[in-house]
Design a protein around this nucleic acid. Structure first.
Length: 192
DNA sequence: GCTGGGATCGCCT
DNA sequence: GGCGATCCCAGCG
């Protein structure tokens, strides 16, 4: 059987380009509890020199993975209780990443409902903290490869849909930068 | 050592 | 729509 997962070269694209390229792809997690997958419908870019980026100041233990090679997972805890999942991009020693903000659930919806304690499919993955929970992604997966493990992306099967570009959510620094992207009209995004 | 704030969510009004 | 939960860690002293 052919391994369809997106290759390393996919993640070595320019970060803003990749933020848009990721829309329509499928994020898959083969966990011990079962397989879950969803279509990426909302992303945000965090760039080098961008004050909202965790790598803005310097390399620290928390953001170290962002400075590593592209195609790895950066998972961090936020507000003491939630986690966010990012795709590391850019060459080594350049801290850039794409935050995955929302998925349209496609596989393992029962398992997602169990993990999220809700049966409302529209809200299973409609936010960065929610999708991490629904997909069974944990802090222990910070730094894992997206090209050689059980967490990976599959190519977008359909023709690309219309992408809306807007400002990012929940930040104060760099709030005016147009680094948020989502699939127009998709009901599974975190907000308009 | 301390302390303030954060790429959020869900419940309450 | 507003706010409290909750904790790691960066930055400063």
């Amino acid at each position: 059987m052919v391994d369809m997962r997106l290759p390393l070269s996919f993640y070595q694209q320019d970060t803003l380009a990749l933020s848009k390229q990721l829309l329509g792809t499928y994020l898959v997690h083969e966990s011990p509890e079962g397989l879950t997958a969803g279509k990426v419908v909302e992303t945000e870019a965090y760039l080098w020199g961008d004050p909202a980026c965790h790598a803005y100041r310097r390399r620290t233990p928390r953001n170290a993975v962002m400075f590593g090679p592209a195609g790895h997972a950066y998972v961090y805890q936020i507000y003491g209780m939630h986690h966010c999942f990012n795709v590391v991009t850019a060459p080594e020693n350049t801290g850039e990443a794409v935050l995955i903000r929302a998925l349209e659930p496609s596989e393992g919806i029962d398992l997602m409902e169990k993990r999220r304690h809700t049966n409302e499919v529209k809200s299973l993955c409609s936010g960065p903290g929610k999708l991490v929970r629904a997909m069974g992604i944990t802090r222990a997966m910070n730094g894992v490869s997206l090209t050689g493990g059980n967490l990976y992306f599959l190519p977008a099967p359909d023709a690309s849909s219309e992408v809306v570009t807007t400002t990012r959510i929940g930040i104060t620094q760099g709030a005016d930068l147009p680094y948020r992207f989502y699939v127009r009209g998709n009901p599974f995004i975190s907000r308009k």
